[in-house]
Design a protein around this nucleic acid. Structure first.
Length: 703
DNA sequence: GAGCACTGC
């Protein structure tokens, strides 16, 4: 601790914080900023007037840093030093230094907008620019203006972003704290390789044969490429003559790997053995692997983006930013001087790479955040002009408003409704919180709680891809319920009910190919939602997961599906005549299909339901709806009326009611009703036709 | 008949 670089800057930091309400700290890796800044200010008396809060983008970080600081101060965790993350609050009235995720701080500010328990708020890792951090930055800017002068905000950032943050906070001072990294030599390729898998392979083997010991960390974009490269590396390493160089172990590392496979990289290698770790950008920030001396950087990353005009997500391989490239290179210099092989030329880095990663706020749906800001009721803040470090596009904000309007969270003038207020108290995306509220009124809350909890953990439920033949076998043997033909939401409900009947047995999860971690998370979420709903409702609610009462004759799940329809009024698709392609009611027309993994079934003619709600639109090889549920036309009618009335300019608080209402939005929607949708090509039609025939053939075969 | 970067309330 004594040799942490940041401690040499203690006087300078204290002096600057004393004189300024906001200070930006550029703290390189290993500077000790996450553990020391709070302690320095604690020593200097800043905890006398309030608690020092330090936010982290990740839960594990909040916990581990808090634990570390408690150790250094020799106090019990949860007393003077504590942490708060979802499901776990380890703080007490004694707590002076509190580590928390930025999501938790946003929740706190909902019930206490002045955040006046805190004398200092440190936004750590702000350069990662998570959606939550960006909203907090905006809120902090407002807070320092309206709270007394002894309230302090510290923001830690990356070298390339510091001036921008300082400018945002009216030119506040920027302090540089050097890190404890060893120098890393950067080597550029002469040109972009045709295949970065091949190129990585060659570079890695070259290092292995020529360079002294030290592990190699290779950044790829995804599981597929990682598996390919791992296989090639194993081949090559085996073909190298025994004894001509040291041994080698090759590890893949990515998020869908089971935890026990992920932690293998933390155990030290056998002697005289070099480790090759082929990773996604999980090793860029979330996981730190010791012993790495060589980094190979493909220069690419896979990123999820949202298109507000189509309501569609896509997962694209894109070029990394300079900040990311430097972060990756830094992974080579943690234990001794290292080398970073960039598989792209210096000119590309210098001229093509963005300085910083496009912040999440500019590539995600903002419905939840806009509702959050609306619910804060800040008198001096206009939602569409909210002071963001990087503003989202007006298109994206308008999309959020439209969505919120359709699910009754805001009225036609853009003002938050009482439903919207209730929704913002639930830690869910808006469509899910709306579903819960509707379900509560329809008497199917218990089922909805389960569906919503399952959906918010959906990606962590199923294990990573298995080998094709192995998977086929498992699929056929699956004893899991099938949604009774109504679709994926119903299946998710039935799966959880099964698990409940099996007394939450972890073995049952394993037997049914469900990730234990994911299911346990669902249970936690469900429990948390139950508690919140109980608080909101004066009556005692029926929330048992088994839901035997009242659901006996409800074999068609009508109440639940209707609640889902209301909650997903912004995500309804209408089937086109004569084939199983769909289009949304609210977005620019695109042909979409039900994702093949869906359990939604067709009728006797092989046709899908006329109307479905979907949880997500994702464009991969084609646009797909993931997680769909059959709904009825009569439920959709009132929503269609509402869509016709929709007037975005009024929602965003501009223009008067009648004068604005012309074509624009309206024509777009009514055009959708014609049978010919622009995005439908013959090619797609015939593909769907073919799919339908295949389906019918398969069904006949089964009978 | 398709396919999953990473977080978080």
């Amino acid at each position: 601790m004594a040799n942490l670089p940041i401690l040499q800057f203690e006087e300078k930091i204290v002096e600057t914080v004393e004189k300024n309400p906001v200070v930006v700290i550029i703290g390189e890796t290993g500077s000790g900023k996450s553990t020391q800044l709070s302690q320095i200010l604690h020593r200097r008396g800043y905890t006398k007037s309030g608690v020092i809060a330090v936010t982290q983008p990740r839960r594990v970080a909040a916990v581990s840093v808090a634990r570390r600081v408690a150790q250094e101060l020799d106090v019990n965790l949860g007393e003077d030093v504590g942490y708060a993350i979802r499901f776990e609050d380890r703080t007490s009235s004694k707590t002076r230094i509190k580590y928390l995720t930025d999501g938790v701080l946003l929740r706190e500010s909902l019930s206490n907008p002045m955040l006046d328990d805190y004398s200092v708020i440190i936004l750590d890792e702000a350069h990662e620019r998570s959606l939550n951090t960006d909203i907090l930055l905006g809120l902090m800017k407002r807070l320092v203006r309206i709270r007394s002068s002894n309230f302090k905000v510290l923001i830690t950032s990356a070298t390339l972003d510091g001036d921008k943050v300082s400018e945002f906070f009216s030119g506040c001072p920027v302090l540089n704290v050097p890190g404890k990294l060893y120098p890393v030599e950067i080597l550029y390729s002469k040109e972009r390789p045709g295949s970065y898998i091949e190129s990585s392979l060659n570079v890695a083997i070259d290092i292995h044969v020529r360079e002294p010991e030290g592990d190699i960390l290779i950044f790829m974009t995804g599981q597929d490429d990682i598996e390919k490269l791992v296989a090639k590396l194993e081949d090559k390493v085996r073909s190298i003559a025994e004894g001509s160089c040291m041994d080698a172990i090759i590890y893949p590392l990515h998020g869908s790997l089971p935890p026990e496979m992920q932690v293998r990289v933390f155990s030290p290698p056998p002697p005289n053995c070099r480790r090759f770790i082929v990773t996604t950008n999980i090793a860029e920030t979330s996981l730190t692997v010791d012993g790495v001396v060589y980094v190979i950087d493909s220069g690419y990353v896979k990123q999820r983006q949202y298109n507000p005009s189509s309501g569609m997500y896509s997962l694209d391989v894109i070029q990394i930013s300079k900040v990311q490239a430097n972060q990756r290179a830094g992974r080579a210099g943690r234990t001794r001087p290292g080398k970073c092989y960039r598989l792209y030329p210096l000119a590309v880095f210098r001229d093509d790479f963005l300085d910083a990663t496009v912040p999440e706020i500019q590539r995600t749906s903002l419905a939840g955040s806009v509702l959050y800001l609306k619910s804060l009721d800040l008198p001096d803040i206009d939602i569409l002009k909210f002071d963001f470090l990087d503003a989202p596009s007006s298109e994206s904000l308008e999309d959020a408003l439209k969505q919120l309007y359709l699910i009754d969270a805001i009225d036609e003038n853009g003002a938050i409704t009482s439903i919207g207020r209730t929704m913002s108290g639930l830690p869910l995306e808006p469509s899910l919180s709306r579903t819960l509220i509707e379900a509560n009124e329809n008497g199917c809350l218990s089922q909805a709680l389960t569906v919503v909890a399952m959906l918010s953990a959906e990606t962590t439920l199923l294990p990573g891809r298995s080998k094709p033949n192995e998977k086929k076998r498992k699929h056929e043997e699956s004893n899991l319920p099938d949604g009774s033909g109504f679709g994926d939401h119903i299946q998710l409900l039935q799966i959880f009910e099964c698990w409940d009947r099996n007394n939450y047995d972890t073995q049952w999860c394993k037997e049914n190919d469900l990730q234990v971690r994911g299911m346990v998370f669902v249970r936690d979420v469900r429990k948390q939602l139950c508690q919140i709903m109980q608080k909101l409702s004066r009556d005692r609610l029926e929330v048992g997961a088994r839901g035997r009462k009242g659901s006996g004759r409800d074999g068609d799940y009508r109440k639940l599906r209707k609640a889902l329809c209301v909650g997903n009024a912004n995500q309804i698709a209408e089937r086109m005549l004569r084939h199983n392609g769909y289009r949304t009611l609210t977005f620019k027309p695109h042909l979409m299909e039900v994702h093949p993994s869906s359990v939604l079934s067709t009728d006797n003619e092989g046709m899908m339901p006329n109307y479905v709600v979907f949880h997500e639109l994702i464009s991969t090889t084609r646009p797909f709806m993931r997680n769909v549920c059959a709904i009825e036309m009569s439920w959709v009618a009132p929503i269609k009326k509402k869509i016709e009335k929709l007037d975005v300019r009024k929602l965003s608080g501009g223009g008067s009611a009648s004068s604005v209402k012309e074509h624009g939005e309206k024509t777009e929607v009514s055009e959708n009703k014609s049978e010919e949708t622009p995005a439908v090509s013959e090619n797609v039609e015939s593909r769907i036709e073919a799919a339908r025939e295949r389906f019918l053939a398969r069904r006949k075969g089964q009978k």
